[in-house]
């Protein structure tokens, strides 16, 4: 009895240590970044000097950085919108319409998701050069959308597959025209998949570097701006930006995960 509890405790202790190590491995770097963003010293060395908002103040006075932030929002919102506009109808087509090559289409639409961003970036760069497109934030948007469409199509399609078709029949039976059925019954029931995949797309696009690197013109997105300033060494200002991005990403990811969870029942 006694030895069993002891063993159990020892086991729990080992288990707890392993968990702590894994968590430290995952989050220690982030924690350090956050801590140094509030450290009252321009060099990133220990010991810590004291608390300051200074780096956040300089950050909000840096017009280049703010422009990059605006660009990032523009790109992420546009890419997400474009993705939804193409991805949602595609998911409906996969679910509802029988057409030749459907299985092939289903597999191919997933491919950009697993392709490395660098491949997407290079290939799209080639294409845009070929057809004579000026590189700009718009070409970045198109580049981002290719990979994101896979996410939207997969999520929305999965939800549509689970959607009880008799709901739509019931709506029609109760006098709803096809557009009323779509807006009052179908859409509310796949709503969480739409919002969830849109949030996920937004987050992924916002943080994206490889595709952006190849496809942007003179404008920079936020991750690109950070990367370019790194050449002059890590500044506490960068840590502050990093902290803000982490905060924003965290909110988005929590939102998207909770949205993608199946509704109660």
């Amino acid at each position: 009895m006694v030895s069993a509890t002891l063993k159990e405790r020892a086991g729990n202790g080992v288990f707890g240590t392993v968990i702590a190590c894994i968590l430290a491995y995952l989050y220690l770097p982030i924690l350090i970044l956050v801590i140094f963003s509030f450290n009252d010293s321009s060099s990133l060395t220990l010991p810590l000097k004291g608390f300051t908002w200074q780096w956040y103040e300089t950050l909000f006075n840096n017009s280049d950085l703010l422009q990059a932030l605006r660009n990032s929002f523009y790109v992420a919102i546009s890419a997400t919108t474009l993705t939804l506009l193409i991805g949602v109808p595609a998911a409906f087509a996969l679910d509802r319409i029988r057409f030749p090559g459907k299985t092939v289409f289903r597999r191919l639409v997933l491919l950009p998701l697993v392709l490395p961003g660098i491949i997407t970036g290079i290939s799209m760069l080639n294409l845009f050069k070929l057809v004579g497109f000026q590189l700009s934030l718009e070409t970045v948007i198109i580049g981002h959308a290719t990979a994101l469409i896979s996410i939207v199509v997969t999520q929305v399609f999965a939800r549509l597959q689970r959607l009880n078709r008799s709901l739509e029949e019931a709506a029609a039976d109760l006098g709803a025209r096809p557009w009323e059925t779509f807006f009052f019954v179908t859409l509310p029931n796949i709503r969480s998949a739409l919002i969830g995949s849109a949030l996920l797309s937004f987050t992924l696009s916002f943080d994206e570097i490889p595709v952006t690197f190849f496809l942007t013109g003179r404008d920079n997105t936020l991750p690109m701006y950070i990367w370019s300033t790194l050449r002059r060494g890590i500044t506490p200002e960068i840590n502050a930006v990093g902290t803000l991005i982490i905060l924003g990403s965290l909110v988005m990811i929590v939102l998207s995960v909770s949205m993608l969870r199946p509704q109660d029942e």
Binding site: S166, D173, A176, Q263
Partner: peptide, 19 residues
Amino acid sequence: PPYKRNVNMVFQDYALFPH
């Protein structure tokens, strides 16, 4: 089409709108 007919159905799985 169903939405133009004056009949209504009770579905086997009820098909109540969950939302």
